[in-house]
């Protein structure tokens, strides 16, 4: 495992910073243009969720490089209000999406692996991985 690089999300502008860092890492590992764009979009969604619902938090990136494959792993952490009904926010057409396909189900689609842990009043941790094809 390579060392982590993290971006603090405090204001809307930080979303752009997180995208930039994520895209640079993705490019370096060898992702194509389409996947770079998808990774950036997933970062936007995670960072916006922090900015909108948790006030502040962090997005950390890690390069995964083992015998089998290479990829990017990102973890979004906040100590915000947490998610009461995870099933509901993961449901298509619910919440912030409003037909835009955005929100956490969107992140799940954009990435290859997705994991979500949340506790009410403690915070949320979303982990997502994309592998180089």
């Amino acid at each position: 495992m390579k060392p982590q690089s993290c971006v603090n999300i405090n204001k809307e502008w930080d979303i752009v910073g997180a995208r930039q860092l994520g895209r640079d890492i993705a490019k370096k590992i060898g992702f194509g243009t389409v996947d770079q764009a998808r990774i950036a979009t997933a970062i936007s969604e995670l960072a916006r969720n922090i900015y909108l619902y948790a006030d502040h938090g962090q997005i950390c990136f890690e390069i995964i490089d083992n015998m089998e494959h290479k990829g990017i792993c990102m973890v979004a952490i906040d100590v915000g209000p947490g998610i009461e009904d995870i099933g509901q926010v993961m449901e298509d057409g619910y919440s912030t999406s409003g037909g835009l396909g955005a929100g956490l189900p969107g992140v799940k689609r954009l990435m290859d692996e997705f994991d979500l842990q949340s506790e009410v009043e403690k915070g949320t941790r979303v982990k997502a991985i994309k592998w180089v094809r």
């Binding site: 298509d92 037909g99 396909g101 955005a102 954009l110």
Partner: peptide
């Protein structure tokens, strides 16, 4: 990109 995700959601 966003069109793509919206399309997938619509499919589901």
């Amino acid at each position: 990109i966003a069109y793509g995700i919206a399309h997938q959601e619509y499919q589901t």
